[in-house]
Design a protein around this nucleic acid. Structure first.
Lengths: 210, 210
DNA sequence: TTATGATTTAATCATTTGATTTAATCACTT
DNA sequence: AAGTGATTAAATCAAATGATTAAATCATAA
C-alpha cells in the first residue's frame, strides 16, 4: 500500500511508463474521455498498478497537467528575460521554439485550453504565468521601443495575443487547415517550418503599423 | 414512442428548450463531460423526455455539433463570395463578424476544435469547408492582388491561418489572457472590440510584407 | 536459498450514467 | 366531460468505469 519507490534501484521506469501513457492519452482525448484502463493498456501494465502508483485518475491527471503546462511555459521564461537579445531576436526565438515544440507535440495547446475551461482561475494562477510574462524583460523592451518611436505603441496583451495566435492557432485547428490545403502530415509540418521565418517578419510589420 | 411533433400547434418550444440546454452544456463541457441528466435539468424538464425526443445523447450531440459548425461558418460564406467588396473590406467584415459572434458565444471555437480531434476527417468533410473557402471569390482576389504586385504573394492557407489566428485565438485562450491583463469580462470584450479595427490594419501590414 | 518488494491476475465493489419502461398527470381541444 | 397527446414521476436496467482486494508470481538483493 505504500508508494515508497526506490528511485534508481529497483525500477524508476514503471512510474515513468505510466506517466508517458497517461500523457499520451490525456493529451489526445482529455480527462473526461480518458479511461484508466486505456492508460494501463497503453503503458503495457496492469490497472491495479496504476492506482497503486498514483492513487486516482484525478491525481494522475493533475500531475500530467501541471507538468505539461510547465513544459509548455519553460521555453518562454528564458527567452522573455534574456537581457542580451533584441526584441526582434526574442520574437524569432519564441516563434521558433514553439513551432519546434508543437511540431513534436501538436496536441498540447488544445489539451491545455480545453481542460482550462473547467477550472479556469485555479490552474492559470498556479503556473504564475502573469508574473513570468508581464514582468519580463521583453515587456520592458516593448515599452522602450514604443517610447523611442521605433515601433507603434501596443497593449502588451494585444501583442502576446498576436504572437501566440499566429504561432499556436494553426496547431489547434490543424485538422481544418490540413483539410483546407489537402495537406499531409509532412506538408503541414513544412508549412509550419516556413512560418518560423514568416511570423517574425509579420510581427515586425504589425509593430510598425502606425 | 413516435416522435411526430405537431409543429406550430401544441409545442415547438420543448424540442427547442432541449436543444438550447444541450447547446449550452455541450459547448461548455464537451461531449464526454456532459451528462444527459444535466441537459434535462438545464432544460427544466424530464430525462425521459430528452430521450423521447432525441433517442440518444450521441444523436443530440451530432445535431448540436452540425448546427454549431454551420452557424460558425454561415457568416463566412457570404462575405467570402461577395463580388462587390474589396479584399480589404472583406477582411474588415470577416473580422468584425467573428468578433461579434464570439463575443456573444466565446465557447464555440474551443468546443468545435476539441471535439474535432476525435473524428477529425469526418466532421471537417461534412461541412464542405474546403469548397466554401478555397474556391471563394476572396481567394481569387488574393491571387489577383499578388499578381498585380499590390500585395506580397502568400499561400492561401497561410493567409487564413493568420486572419483566423489573430481573430479566434484570443477567445480560445481567454482565461489566460484575462489573467495576464487582469481583465474583467467587460475589459476583455472591450479589448476584442478594439481588435475589430486593429486586425484589419495588421493583416494589411502583413500582406504588404515583401 | 530466502526474503522482500514489484507486478500480475482475477475477481469484485460501488458508483455513475445512458437509456427504457409504466403508470400517472397535465394541458388543451372538441 | 371525454379524449388525446405531451409531460412527469419513479423505478429500473445494463453497461461502463474508477477503485480495491487478495493471492499468486516474478525479480533481485542479501
Amino acid at each position: 500500500m505504500k508508494v515508497n519507490k526506490t528511485f534508481g534501484e529497483a525500477d524508476a521506469s514503471t512510474e515513468e511508463k505510466i506517466k508517458q501513457a497517461a500523457r499520451n492519452i490525456f493529451h489526445k482525448k482529455g480527462f473526461a474521455a480518458t479511461r484508466t484502463r486505456d492508460i494501463a493498456e497503453e503503458a503495457g501494465l496492469n490497472l491495479a498498478l496504476l492506482n497503486y502508483y498514483f492513487r486516482s485518475k484525478q491525481k494522475l491527471f493533475d500531475l500530467i497537467m501541471l507538468e505539461t503546462m510547465q513544459h509548455f511555459l519553460l521555453s518562454l521564461t528564458d527567452i522573455f528575460n534574456a537581457q542580451g537579445t533584441s526584441l526582434e531576436t526574442k520574437i524569432e526565438l519564441l516563434v521558433g521554439n514553439y513551432i519546434d515544440l508543437l511540431t513534436e507535440e501538436p496536441d498540447i495547446p488544445i489539451f491545455i485550453l480545453s481542460e482550462l475551461r473547467n477550472n479556469p482561475q485555479e490552474l492559470v494562477a498556479k503556473i504564475r504565468i502573469k508574473e513570468i510574462l508581464m514582468r519580463s524583460y521583453l515587456m520592458k523592451q516593448l515599452q522602450e521601443e514604443a517610447a523611442a518611436g521605433r515601433i507603434a505603441p501596443i497593449h502588451p496583451v494585444q501583442f502576446i495575443m498576436n504572437v501566440m495566435g499566429l504561432t499556436v492557432f494553426p496547431f489547434i485547428a490543424k485538422p481544418i487547415f490540413s483539410n483546407l490545403g489537402n495537406l499531409s502530415e509532412a506538408d503541414f509540418n513544412q508549412m509550419m517550418a516556413q512560418r518560423k521565418a514568416l511570423i517574425p517578419q509579420w510581427v515586425k510589420a504589425i509593430l510598425a503599423t502606425s
